[in-house]
Design a protein around this nucleic acid. Structure first.
Lengths: 212, 212
DNA sequence: GAAAAAATTACGACGGGCGTAAATTTAGAA
DNA sequence: TTCTAAATTTACGCCCGTCGTAATTTTTTC
């Protein structure tokens, strides 16, 4: 799946520079908050030019929310990987249970410091909203492909909206509990039941949708 | 419901100034796009200081998306106004049908120029996302109050997420059709059936939720 | 008409983002 | 090995949105 890594010197240095900048950014964000940290500060700390930072990270938010690929693709992947006889809802449900057991950041586990940083920054909150939307779009395309729906059909998009909203709600509530001081383990034990209630509500509407 | 309008001279001039700025902003936005128009231009056109513009409108987006109160409150109001024996879903459904008949901007009718302006501007798109979220929050509170749910209960929020997502999807699709060149009348006749499919999908999950 | 309150104004600062051209580093070939 | 071409990094400047502050003007109130 991945590209062959001959990884010339140039490529290697690029990754190092990127990581260097990202590390300093993370450290400064945690220490003094996202909004209070300037790109110039990050550049100075990493001993590169300001422009180099903005070359690697087009927007400042990307310095804090980097691994967004995994997040936006997670639901579509869960649907693509559903087992024979399993509905899209069941697949998403199972994926969430797994994420819960593994304290996966994709489900909302990211540590109190990270949750605080996001909650305190309108910029990051907005970016997170956008990522949730992208995740829904990716899911909609996966559902359209899985069901062979006609082009521009509303059904896969409606199903994606319902599923993605449920996951977004659980994500937000996990972050809320984190900010309230709950540990990951406490949350993981609590949210099994919580997720059950949310998914059970969707069951009559989506239980037989996109069954493989 | 409204405040007594003695409307002293000061208050009257404030409203006039606000309207004056808003009108010039709207005109410039339509002519040259949102991003291409600067606050300074708007201030110059309205013959006021730049600071006066930012005093009235804290963020530039507010100059384009002004009447957001009505939008964010619309779903909660629909639920509050539901009739005896009517569920929250039925109330929202009825409200959408009405909005469709009246070509209400709240449902997504805003004219091709406006739809184009929003679609072309990341800033406005982000702001619209935020408004959709606020609308969902207001709906969640209305549902919690209507059902007497315990504090922090997930159910009203889950129901609000499903309902608001459905309305958001219809909103987005109406804008898409508008951008594709469809007239409001064409859209209104088409989206009756579209909404039916979306709401019917929710019926088994929410048909008996929050019945008055 | 004067004093108090409020709105508007001018001015400046800061940060994020973008473009451009020069300088440095790397890759590939002679 | 050395030279050339390509890519990366850098320095510099600009624009715009946003925020503070203090001075000025306008409106209200006595």
């Amino acid at each position: 799946m991945d590209v062959e890594p001959p990884l010339g010197l140039r490529e290697a240095k690029k990754q190092e520079t990127r990581q260097l900048i990202s590390d300093h950014a993370t450290r400064l964000f945690q220490r003094q908050g996202f909004e209070a940290t300037t790109i110039t500060e990050i550049a100075t700390a990493a001993r590169v030019a300001k422009k180099t930072v903005t070359n690697y990270f087009a927007r400042k938010e990307d310095l804090a929310l980097d691994h967004h690929e995994e997040f936006t693709a997670s639901l579509a992947r869960a649907v693509d990987a559903r087992k024979p006889g399993e509905s899209a809802l069941a697949a998403v449900r199972r994926a969430f249970d797994t994420a819960l057991r593994e304290r996966d950041p994709v489900a909302g586990f990211a540590g109190p410091a990270f949750a605080r940083m996001v909650a305190d920054s309108p910029t990051l909150t907005a970016r997170l909203r956008e990522l949730h939307e992208q995740r829904e779009h990716a899911l909609a395309e996966a559902l359209a492909a899985a069901t062979g729906a006609p082009a521009d059909d509303v059904l896969p998009r409606a199903a994606a909206a319902q599923l993605a909203s449920a996951l977004r709600l659980l994500f937000v509530r996990i972050q809320e509990r984190t900010l309230a001081g709950a540990t990951d383990t406490e949350i993981a034990t609590t949210f099994g039941a919580e997720a059950e209630r949310v998914f059970d509500q969707l069951e009559p509407a989506l239980g037989r949708y996109a069954v493989r």
